[in-house]
Design a protein around this nucleic acid. Sequence first.
DNA 1: TCACTATATAAGTATATGCTTATATTTGCA
DNA 2: TGCAAATATAAGCATATACTTATATAGTGA
Lengths: 114, 114
Amino acid sequence: MEKTMVDIERATTALKLLGDKTRLTIVGLLKGNECCVCEFVEILQMSQPAISQHLRKLRDAGLVQEERKGHWIFYKLNESSDIFPLVANVLEHIPEQKEKLEALEKSGKRIQCD
Amino acid sequence: MEKTMVDIERATTALKLLGDKTRLTIVGLLKGNECCVCEFVEILQMSQPAISQHLRKLRDAGLVQEERKGHWIFYKLNESSDIFPLVANVLEHIPEQKEKLEALEKSGKRIQCD
DNA sequence: TCACTATATAAGTATATGCTTATATTTGCA
DNA sequence: TGCAAATATAAGCATATACTTATATAGTGA
């Protein structure tokens, strides 16, 4: 595990973003996966604008990256960000979220583009 | 580094608390140290009630512990808390705060009880 | 070009948060 | 016993936050 340092300001920005259940779950889902907005909407059972707004905050702070693939915009963790090591470290302390993606897959709602 | 798991709710509570510059600095100062309220007031240049209120939140969530020593109430990290490993892990990514305590010491304002 | 789907943005609102000032509580000591 | 110092609590207020609903934008395919 890398231990990249970030200044207090940058750390509080990231921690504040992670200090919300919806966003922490989103980031947890992105550990090892790429997801599009509609998948978050389905898994988290929240409105599409609410999800979009959370994703924008995460993107503005550099925690996630977006990439359009046809109809969908996929999000993934921004591994080249200075705060990625901190984020990854935090994620090691919370339960895996991938069963939620597996459940999506079983129900046929998982989006695959490649 | 231990990797104790906590549920999402508990993690967001802790991360929300750490997602504030004042509180993150307080917790950073407590890494390896015990400090009393007046020291935080001096170092952070904030009002005593503001500091007290931050400390109460940290205590209510189990991140810190208090111990009275005569006139003063000293705070320290709660190392037996289920979220201590997460907190300690986060602190490895931010700069050491102890120069601030050393500066206090040089100016003769550090409180020592033992 | 048009309609449809996925996503983003904007504006409004209720609640949460972090301070302030004022006051209460607790302890040590003359 | 009473005062001073350290800390906590309470109430009030301005700002931040996380939704909502309505609308705009962008890509796909007929």
